[in-house]
Design a binder for these strands. Structure first.
Lengths: 246, 246
DNA sequence: ACCTGAACACCGTTCAAGT
DNA sequence: ACCTGAACACCGTTCAAGT
């Protein structure tokens, strides 16, 4: 009440070694006895967050807006979640949950890997906010970990070990997430006026960018072809490494 | 003044085919006669933005804070820039400007490419916010375009054409940006308490994640080794493709 | 051409209080 | 154990006004 106490509010959580770091929701131990028959649950919140993000985009997600779609008040969410960032971790792991894994590994490990890469790409593209998000935070949710386990297992059975195994798994994951992030980031530029402005820009500076100016700019329908081509490069490099070992 | 007119304010720019899309600052034609001897300039603003981002992080960048370091009022920035997003495009391209390109291409194109990849990685790591940012928006600034031109030229001279050329260039750029984004996103998890929590989490669920549980979790000093290894994989795949063509 | 100042419609988060 | 309501300290952005 006293006006002099007014300045005590903290600015947005920053720094601090505390547990409020992205991905940390997975590492915090939940108090037992939570969630007994309450209306809200992490699952419902995760799903609702995905829905709002799909509809309104990353900048359209606010606690107030999310709360409305859950028929609840904004501050209620803080009982289930510590931070807005937690919501993003929840939503992102839900997307990873959409990637279907085969029940058994294929004879040919490259089948497992290319199948997974296509599956992950499809899931991420379904939720245009998820690619950029996935490249901005550690992927520690149960669904993401299960996918990582699948990839590691496939690579291990192929013969990769130690640093090679980790580097290969990272390269695979990064490739998919990176290409999807790029692709979705171009979604607005893909609209004709922006694309035209870009073309004019490049040709106007053709002296500076001789090679780029000749290059056809990405067109919607070629994203997948480019993805598959680059995936081929990467897998060729991986198999080359294997045969060098044997 | 009249209270009934109050609701007319718009919510944050969303949708709309208008020119307010990420990266668009580069595609907008500036009114001529701008910036004649004024104190502020795009360059000064870009540099200040980088400084604030380095110091306060992505969530710590606000127009008010940036304006303060420029000794100017927040609303003044709108004369030079249309949107907060424009600031990010400006800052990101400044980081690309830190990547030094060799004056001439090497005899061996892989030297050019690996040199560039290391250089880009170093620059992005210097500004921990830049990796995630780079994977979230089109890279259309003059500095980014010049780097892209360099990579395309090196690959073209190596013999890549058409789809192979574009896919190879994209894979190279994505690989660096993706690995840096991952590495920086782990910076907080790398602190001991969080890392310990993660280790316990993985071992506690060892049944679910048998392969992951055996895997040594990333340690600060191994990031570069992993980066270099994955780069080797990618380049092996690229050279394999070349020799198949000939 | 460039900068200021006031104002609007939002934010995330805390905390005391209800059931 | 879970939800509400009021409040705080911020935001980005617009617009009329100054020089």
């Amino acid at each position: 009440m006293h006006p002099l106490v007014t300045m005590r509010r903290m600015s947005p959580k920053r720094g601090g070694t505390g547990p409020h770091t992205p991905g940390a929701i997975w590492l915090r131990t939940r108090a037992p006895g939570r969630n007994t028959g309450s209306e809200l649950s992490r699952e419902r919140i995760a799903d609702a967050t995905v829905t709002v993000l799909d509809r309104d985009g990353m900048s359209g997600l606010s606690l107030r807006r999310l709360a409305t779609t859950l028929n609840v008040h904004a501050t209620t969410l803080y009982w289930h979640v510590a931070t807005r960032d937690d919501l993003l971790d929840l939503a992102l792991d839900a997307v990873f949950g959409e990637v279907v894994l085969p029940e058994t590994h294929a004879h040919d490990w490259t089948h497992d890997i290319t199948g997974y890469m296509h599956g992950l790409r499809t899931a991420l593209l379904q939720h245009p906010w998820s690619g950029a998000l996935a490249s901005s935070r550690p992927l520690l949710g149960p669904n993401a970990l299960a996918r990582a386990e699948f990839v590691h297992a496939a690579l291990a059975s192929a013969g990769f070990t130690e640093l090679d195994l980790t580097a290969a798994a990272a390269a695979i994951s990064n490739y998919v997430i990176g290409t999807v992030a790029t692709e979705t980031s171009w979604q607005h530029v893909d609209e004709t006026p922006a694309r035209q402005a870009l073309n004019e820009h490049l040709h106007h500076h053709a002296a500076l960018y001789p090679t780029l100016a000749t290059q056809p700019p990405p067109i919607d329908t070629t994203w997948e072809a480019h993805f598959t081509r680059g995936m081929t490069f990467l897998l060729a490099g991986l198999t080359a490494q294997l045969s060098r070992d044997q």
